[in-house]
Amino acid sequence: MPDVRSLVVQSVLFGNAPREIVRAAEAVATSVKWARAEGLIGEWSLLLGDCSDVEVLDASHQADIRSLVLDQGGSFEYHVFGANLGSAAGHNALAPKAVSDLILILNPDAVVAPDAVEALARVVVGSVGIAEARQVPLEHPKDYEVATGNTSWASTACALTPRLAFDRVHGFDSKTFFLYCDDVDYSWQLRLAGYRVVYEPAARVFHDKRLTVTADWPASSAEVYFSAEAAIFLAHKYSRPDLVSKLVRQFRAEGTEVARKVVESFERRRSEGTLPLPVDSSHTVAQFIGGNYAVHRF
């Protein structure tokens, strides 16, 4: 049985509906309650960092959340950043604002299951650097080992990481990854540092993703841009110049406005000398498989 550990739950807001934030806070407070009842979590707090132009939470909503957290023995802080930092920089900015053994990175509107925190806390022991909750209704297709849960990378829609591990890899690489693949990179940094990355299917979180009526993924323009940009930065950072060249050629051939901007962004960073230093030169952790960063089950 792991020792009682302290926990900070942190979420980065950007233009969310206040009602959803209150609901998510109630869900996570309930989940922490049961983890505390099992002796897995002691002191805890909820930190929300707001990157919106207009503050998401008014005094009334803040009071509602504070009450929900206080009822479960926690404390609540609401930080207004006044700028769209992106999720990576937002979490990096929140992390030093509290002290804890564990950090739960959580999407602001994600609804965690009552036993999610307990399930994650049970597996984040020893060499585990991050444990990811299973998302419903759309489960990520990454493969994982049945017996151990070991996987290539962990999505941070809902993931528990020890603060020691977070600090050791200096948190998220927000200079390189604004919105996408910050979690892939964080996972691979942890694995390079000797930690395990695990998928915990018994920990579940409702992440409100939807499909088109034909069950296709409705990618937004921001998603298309930032995921393409992240793909090329990730290939560069993990010592795959061959893949960088291939992606640049591919994007140039596509000729779309988005593809052109992605290539421009990469070339600009390269000429400025602001690209990250390549790591994992022997390719021990990074996986680039058909545009994915892990073997997929489907």
């Binding site: 049970r122 759309l138 297709p141 049945v146 299917p201 018994a202 089950r297 489907f298």
Partner: peptide, 18 residues
């Protein structure tokens, strides 16, 4: 599928199909 913590779980093996 038996999950890592021994629960009687399951493994999702396909993308949702309309």
């Amino acid at each position: 599928e038996k999950w890592p913590q021994a629960q009687e779980g399951f493994r999702t093996i396909s993308w949702p199909k309309a």
